[in-house]
Write a protein that binds this DNA or RNA. Structure first.
Lengths: 249, 249
DNA sequence: CAGTGGTCTAGACCACTGG
DNA sequence: CAGTGGTCTAGACCACTGC
């Protein structure tokens, strides 16, 4: 149905492969909110008919989106929009592991929620104007009941309206799944800058360590569709009993 | 030619998909050394004829190996065994970037090479016996001429015979490309545990910092084909002007 | 059982590379 | 130009899921 530039006998001068065009169209359906997290998308047969291409071409487009973790294929059931509700994806963005290899419980204590004018740095990373406001969330993550991470999270108020500490505390689940269900914002990828710092006063207090103690300091920028940055997160990590796991593939 | 279990009409009870079997066979040709780093492997048409399957099936096997960075496809030329010589792959395992975003030069100074009995920890990670010996390389990496990383590298002597500081210093290029060309050992993936520590005396000295200064401490285990561990690397990183970059995808 | 994704085939044509 | 990988088709059959 759609105006793909590559009719079976392409005479058009400039074109990208059919499956790329279809991938772009699917991406559009994802980012426009036409399909929501957890939804099943149309079957390969339906999509092939709709786009008037063969099933193999649709398949290649879906394959790529699945390999980018935007879609999830389930044999016999269908293809679904990836969601942060899934266990698989839930811990993709929390990389801490215990020294002893054991499992551990994670809990979160919201310290503060403020709406403020963002610093220049945060503004730049989020692509905001000086006058735009951001929600600042301060929270402490604990592992097995012991404070392990202090985080400061910055979100554009325009995308995340009316955030309050109470609402945040009421939600059971990860922040990213809250963003998804409450604001329809899905995090797709993130980039981190990792450093070691001597604990600043503020962090030392929350983590119950001396103020020159070495901490991991992680600055993360998270992106949604179309590489749009939607979150800046600063974290101070205690790495005595837990470490940050990184896989180079 | 090979005895794939899935002849066109499969009556055999247990089997994995054809393309997986072919992938396994290609993997074998890679790990056995039949194909070396940088070599061109047989064309899709040849492989299809050889395995008596359609080109599409071979293609799917190669696609997966390419997505795992074991093979590199080059349109119009052929498919090649990935090598650490390539710029693309050369920096896949060094994640430091400058705060100002500028490029910078990296240089390496070999401090020491010893053949020793490995500690229990290193033995365990490398799958060695207590009595097996390892090569211990101590070196300092500098960025723009300023010492930035102290590394201690442990290699099984059995796989890396006759390593000397002189040979190491004579080689121009990354350590991984040296391993590849000199010992025919190719690193495929690595896992890291990242922590912040207060600089130990030894590291502080090499990096010219005070001994309680916060440093990144990275423990890396590198693997070759078949998930065989072949290197343990301990690194202390100064992160004042450079940071460790991590991408969550 | 009908509907989904997963595998596989055979063949066509295109785009790119190097000699 | 011949040879390579890249795209696309049409159709077959399999494996899995849920009703």
């Amino acid at each position: 149905m759609s105006d793909l530039q590559n009719t079976p006998n392409p005479n058009t001068p400039i074109f990208s492969p059919l499956y790329q065009q279809i991938k772009a169209l699917l991406l559009q359906s994802l980012s426009s909110g036409e399909w929501n997290a957890g939804d099943m998308i149309p079957s390969e047969v339906d999509l092939a008919a709709h786009f008037k291409v063969s099933q193999g071409t649709v398949r290649k487009a879906i394959d790529e989106l699945a390999s980018e973790n935007l879609l999830v294929r389930r044999q016999g059931r269908g293809t679904f929009v990836a969601t942060h509700q899934e266990a698989q994806i839930r811990f993709r963005f929390l990389s801490m592991q215990a020294d002893n290899g054991q499992k551990f419980t994670t809990s979160s204590a919201v310290v503060d929620v403020d709406v403020i004018l963002a610093s220049v740095g945060v503004c730049a990373h989020l692509g905001l104007a000086d006058s735009d406001r951001v929600v600042q969330i301060t929270r402490v993550l604990s592992f097995n009941g012991r404070a392990g991470v202090l985080e400061k999270i910055y979100l554009p108020e325009a995308l995340f309206p009316n955030v309050t500490a109470d609402k945040l505390r009421a939600y059971k689940g990860t922040l990213y799944s809250w963003f998804e269900s409450e604001f329809n914002v899905r995090m797709i990828r993130a980039v981190e800058q990792i450093r070691a710092v001597n604990a600043p006063e503020s962090a030392a207090e929350y983590l119950n360590v001396a103020s020159n103690e070495a901490l991991l300091y992680v600055e993360r920028i998270s992106y949604t569709y179309a590489d749009k940055p939607v979150e800046v997160r600063h974290g101070w990590y205690l790495t005595h009993d837990y470490f940050y796991k990184n896989e180079l593939i």
